[in-house]
């Protein structure tokens, strides 16, 4: 198993892996539906669904952001092929998160929602993160990648900002026990730090190589 993982999977294996990841990404949703039908979503089901969908959006986002560091450290590249699917699943759970908030939490009371967004920085950064994710999801198709060319990459660097906002959104949610958001902040800093490290290291390297 380990040997087959370290080797680059072939096309058939990649599509199997993709299928597996796709199924795994649906497990949190399936679980919520299961718990819902068994009246087992805690005393505050709306909060439960909000927390759960929010967590999985953040979790999948961090996994997505881990693909490049894996490449940088190990030289392995095949996992990059999972990036679009994972990114879209992040957006999928973010959508469920927002729908829960707008529908189940606020029952489409737009006045209260507007007040909530403008008066509470925590909601504002979460809302901003979601709005920034919309264009990324919209430009995730091959056709859009081709059409936007170099701008596509620039646009999709927004994901770093989205991740930072998402962690802040979570951090400001907790009253006093910051251990969990702190963990995600550390993971995010590590994932971004690895990128910065390799970028500067590569730049230094290319500088130090004498031209001739």
């Amino acid at each position: 198993m380990l040997r087959s993982l370290s080797a680059t999977p072939n096309k058939a294996q990649i599509s199997r892996i993709k299928g597996l990841v796709f199924a795994l990404c649906l497990v949190p949703l399936a679980r919520l539906i299961w718990l819902g039908f068994h009246d087992d979503l805690s005393a505050n089901p709306v909060e439960f669904i909000e927390r759960s969908t929010g967590f999985w959006a953040l979790f999948i986002l961090l996994v997505t952001l881990a693909l490049t560091p894996i490449k940088l450290i190990s030289g392995r590249v095949w996992q990059i092929q999972l990036r679009r699917m994972l990114g879209l699943f992040m957006f999928f759970y973010a959508c469920l998160h927002i729908i829960t908030y707008v529908w189940l939490d606020f029952a489409f009371n737009w006045l209260d929602i507007t007040k909530d967004i403008t008066k509470h920085p925590r909601i504002l950064v979460g809302f901003a993160a979601f709005m920034l994710a919309v264009p990324l999801a919209a430009t995730s198709t091959n056709a859009m990648v081709r059409r936007l060319r170099n701008n596509w990459k620039k646009l999709h660097q927004l994901v770093y900002l989205i991740a930072i906002l998402a962690v802040i959104h979570f951090w400001w949610l907790v009253k006093k026990d910051i251990r969990e958001p702190l963990l995600y902040a550390v993971i995010l800093i590590a994932l971004l730090g690895i990128r910065v490290y390799y970028k500067t290291a590569l730049a230094d390297k290319s500088k130090s190589i004498p031209r001739d």
Binding site: P28, R31, L32, L35, F48, R51, S52, G54, F55, W56, L58, F59, R179, E180, L183, Y184, I187
Partner: peptide, 13 residues
């Protein structure tokens, strides 16, 4: 696990 607390993420990571 579902609440997405420390434990679940740590367990997977």
């Amino acid at each position: 696990a579902g609440f997405g607390m420390l434990a679940s993420s740590a367990a997977i990571l």
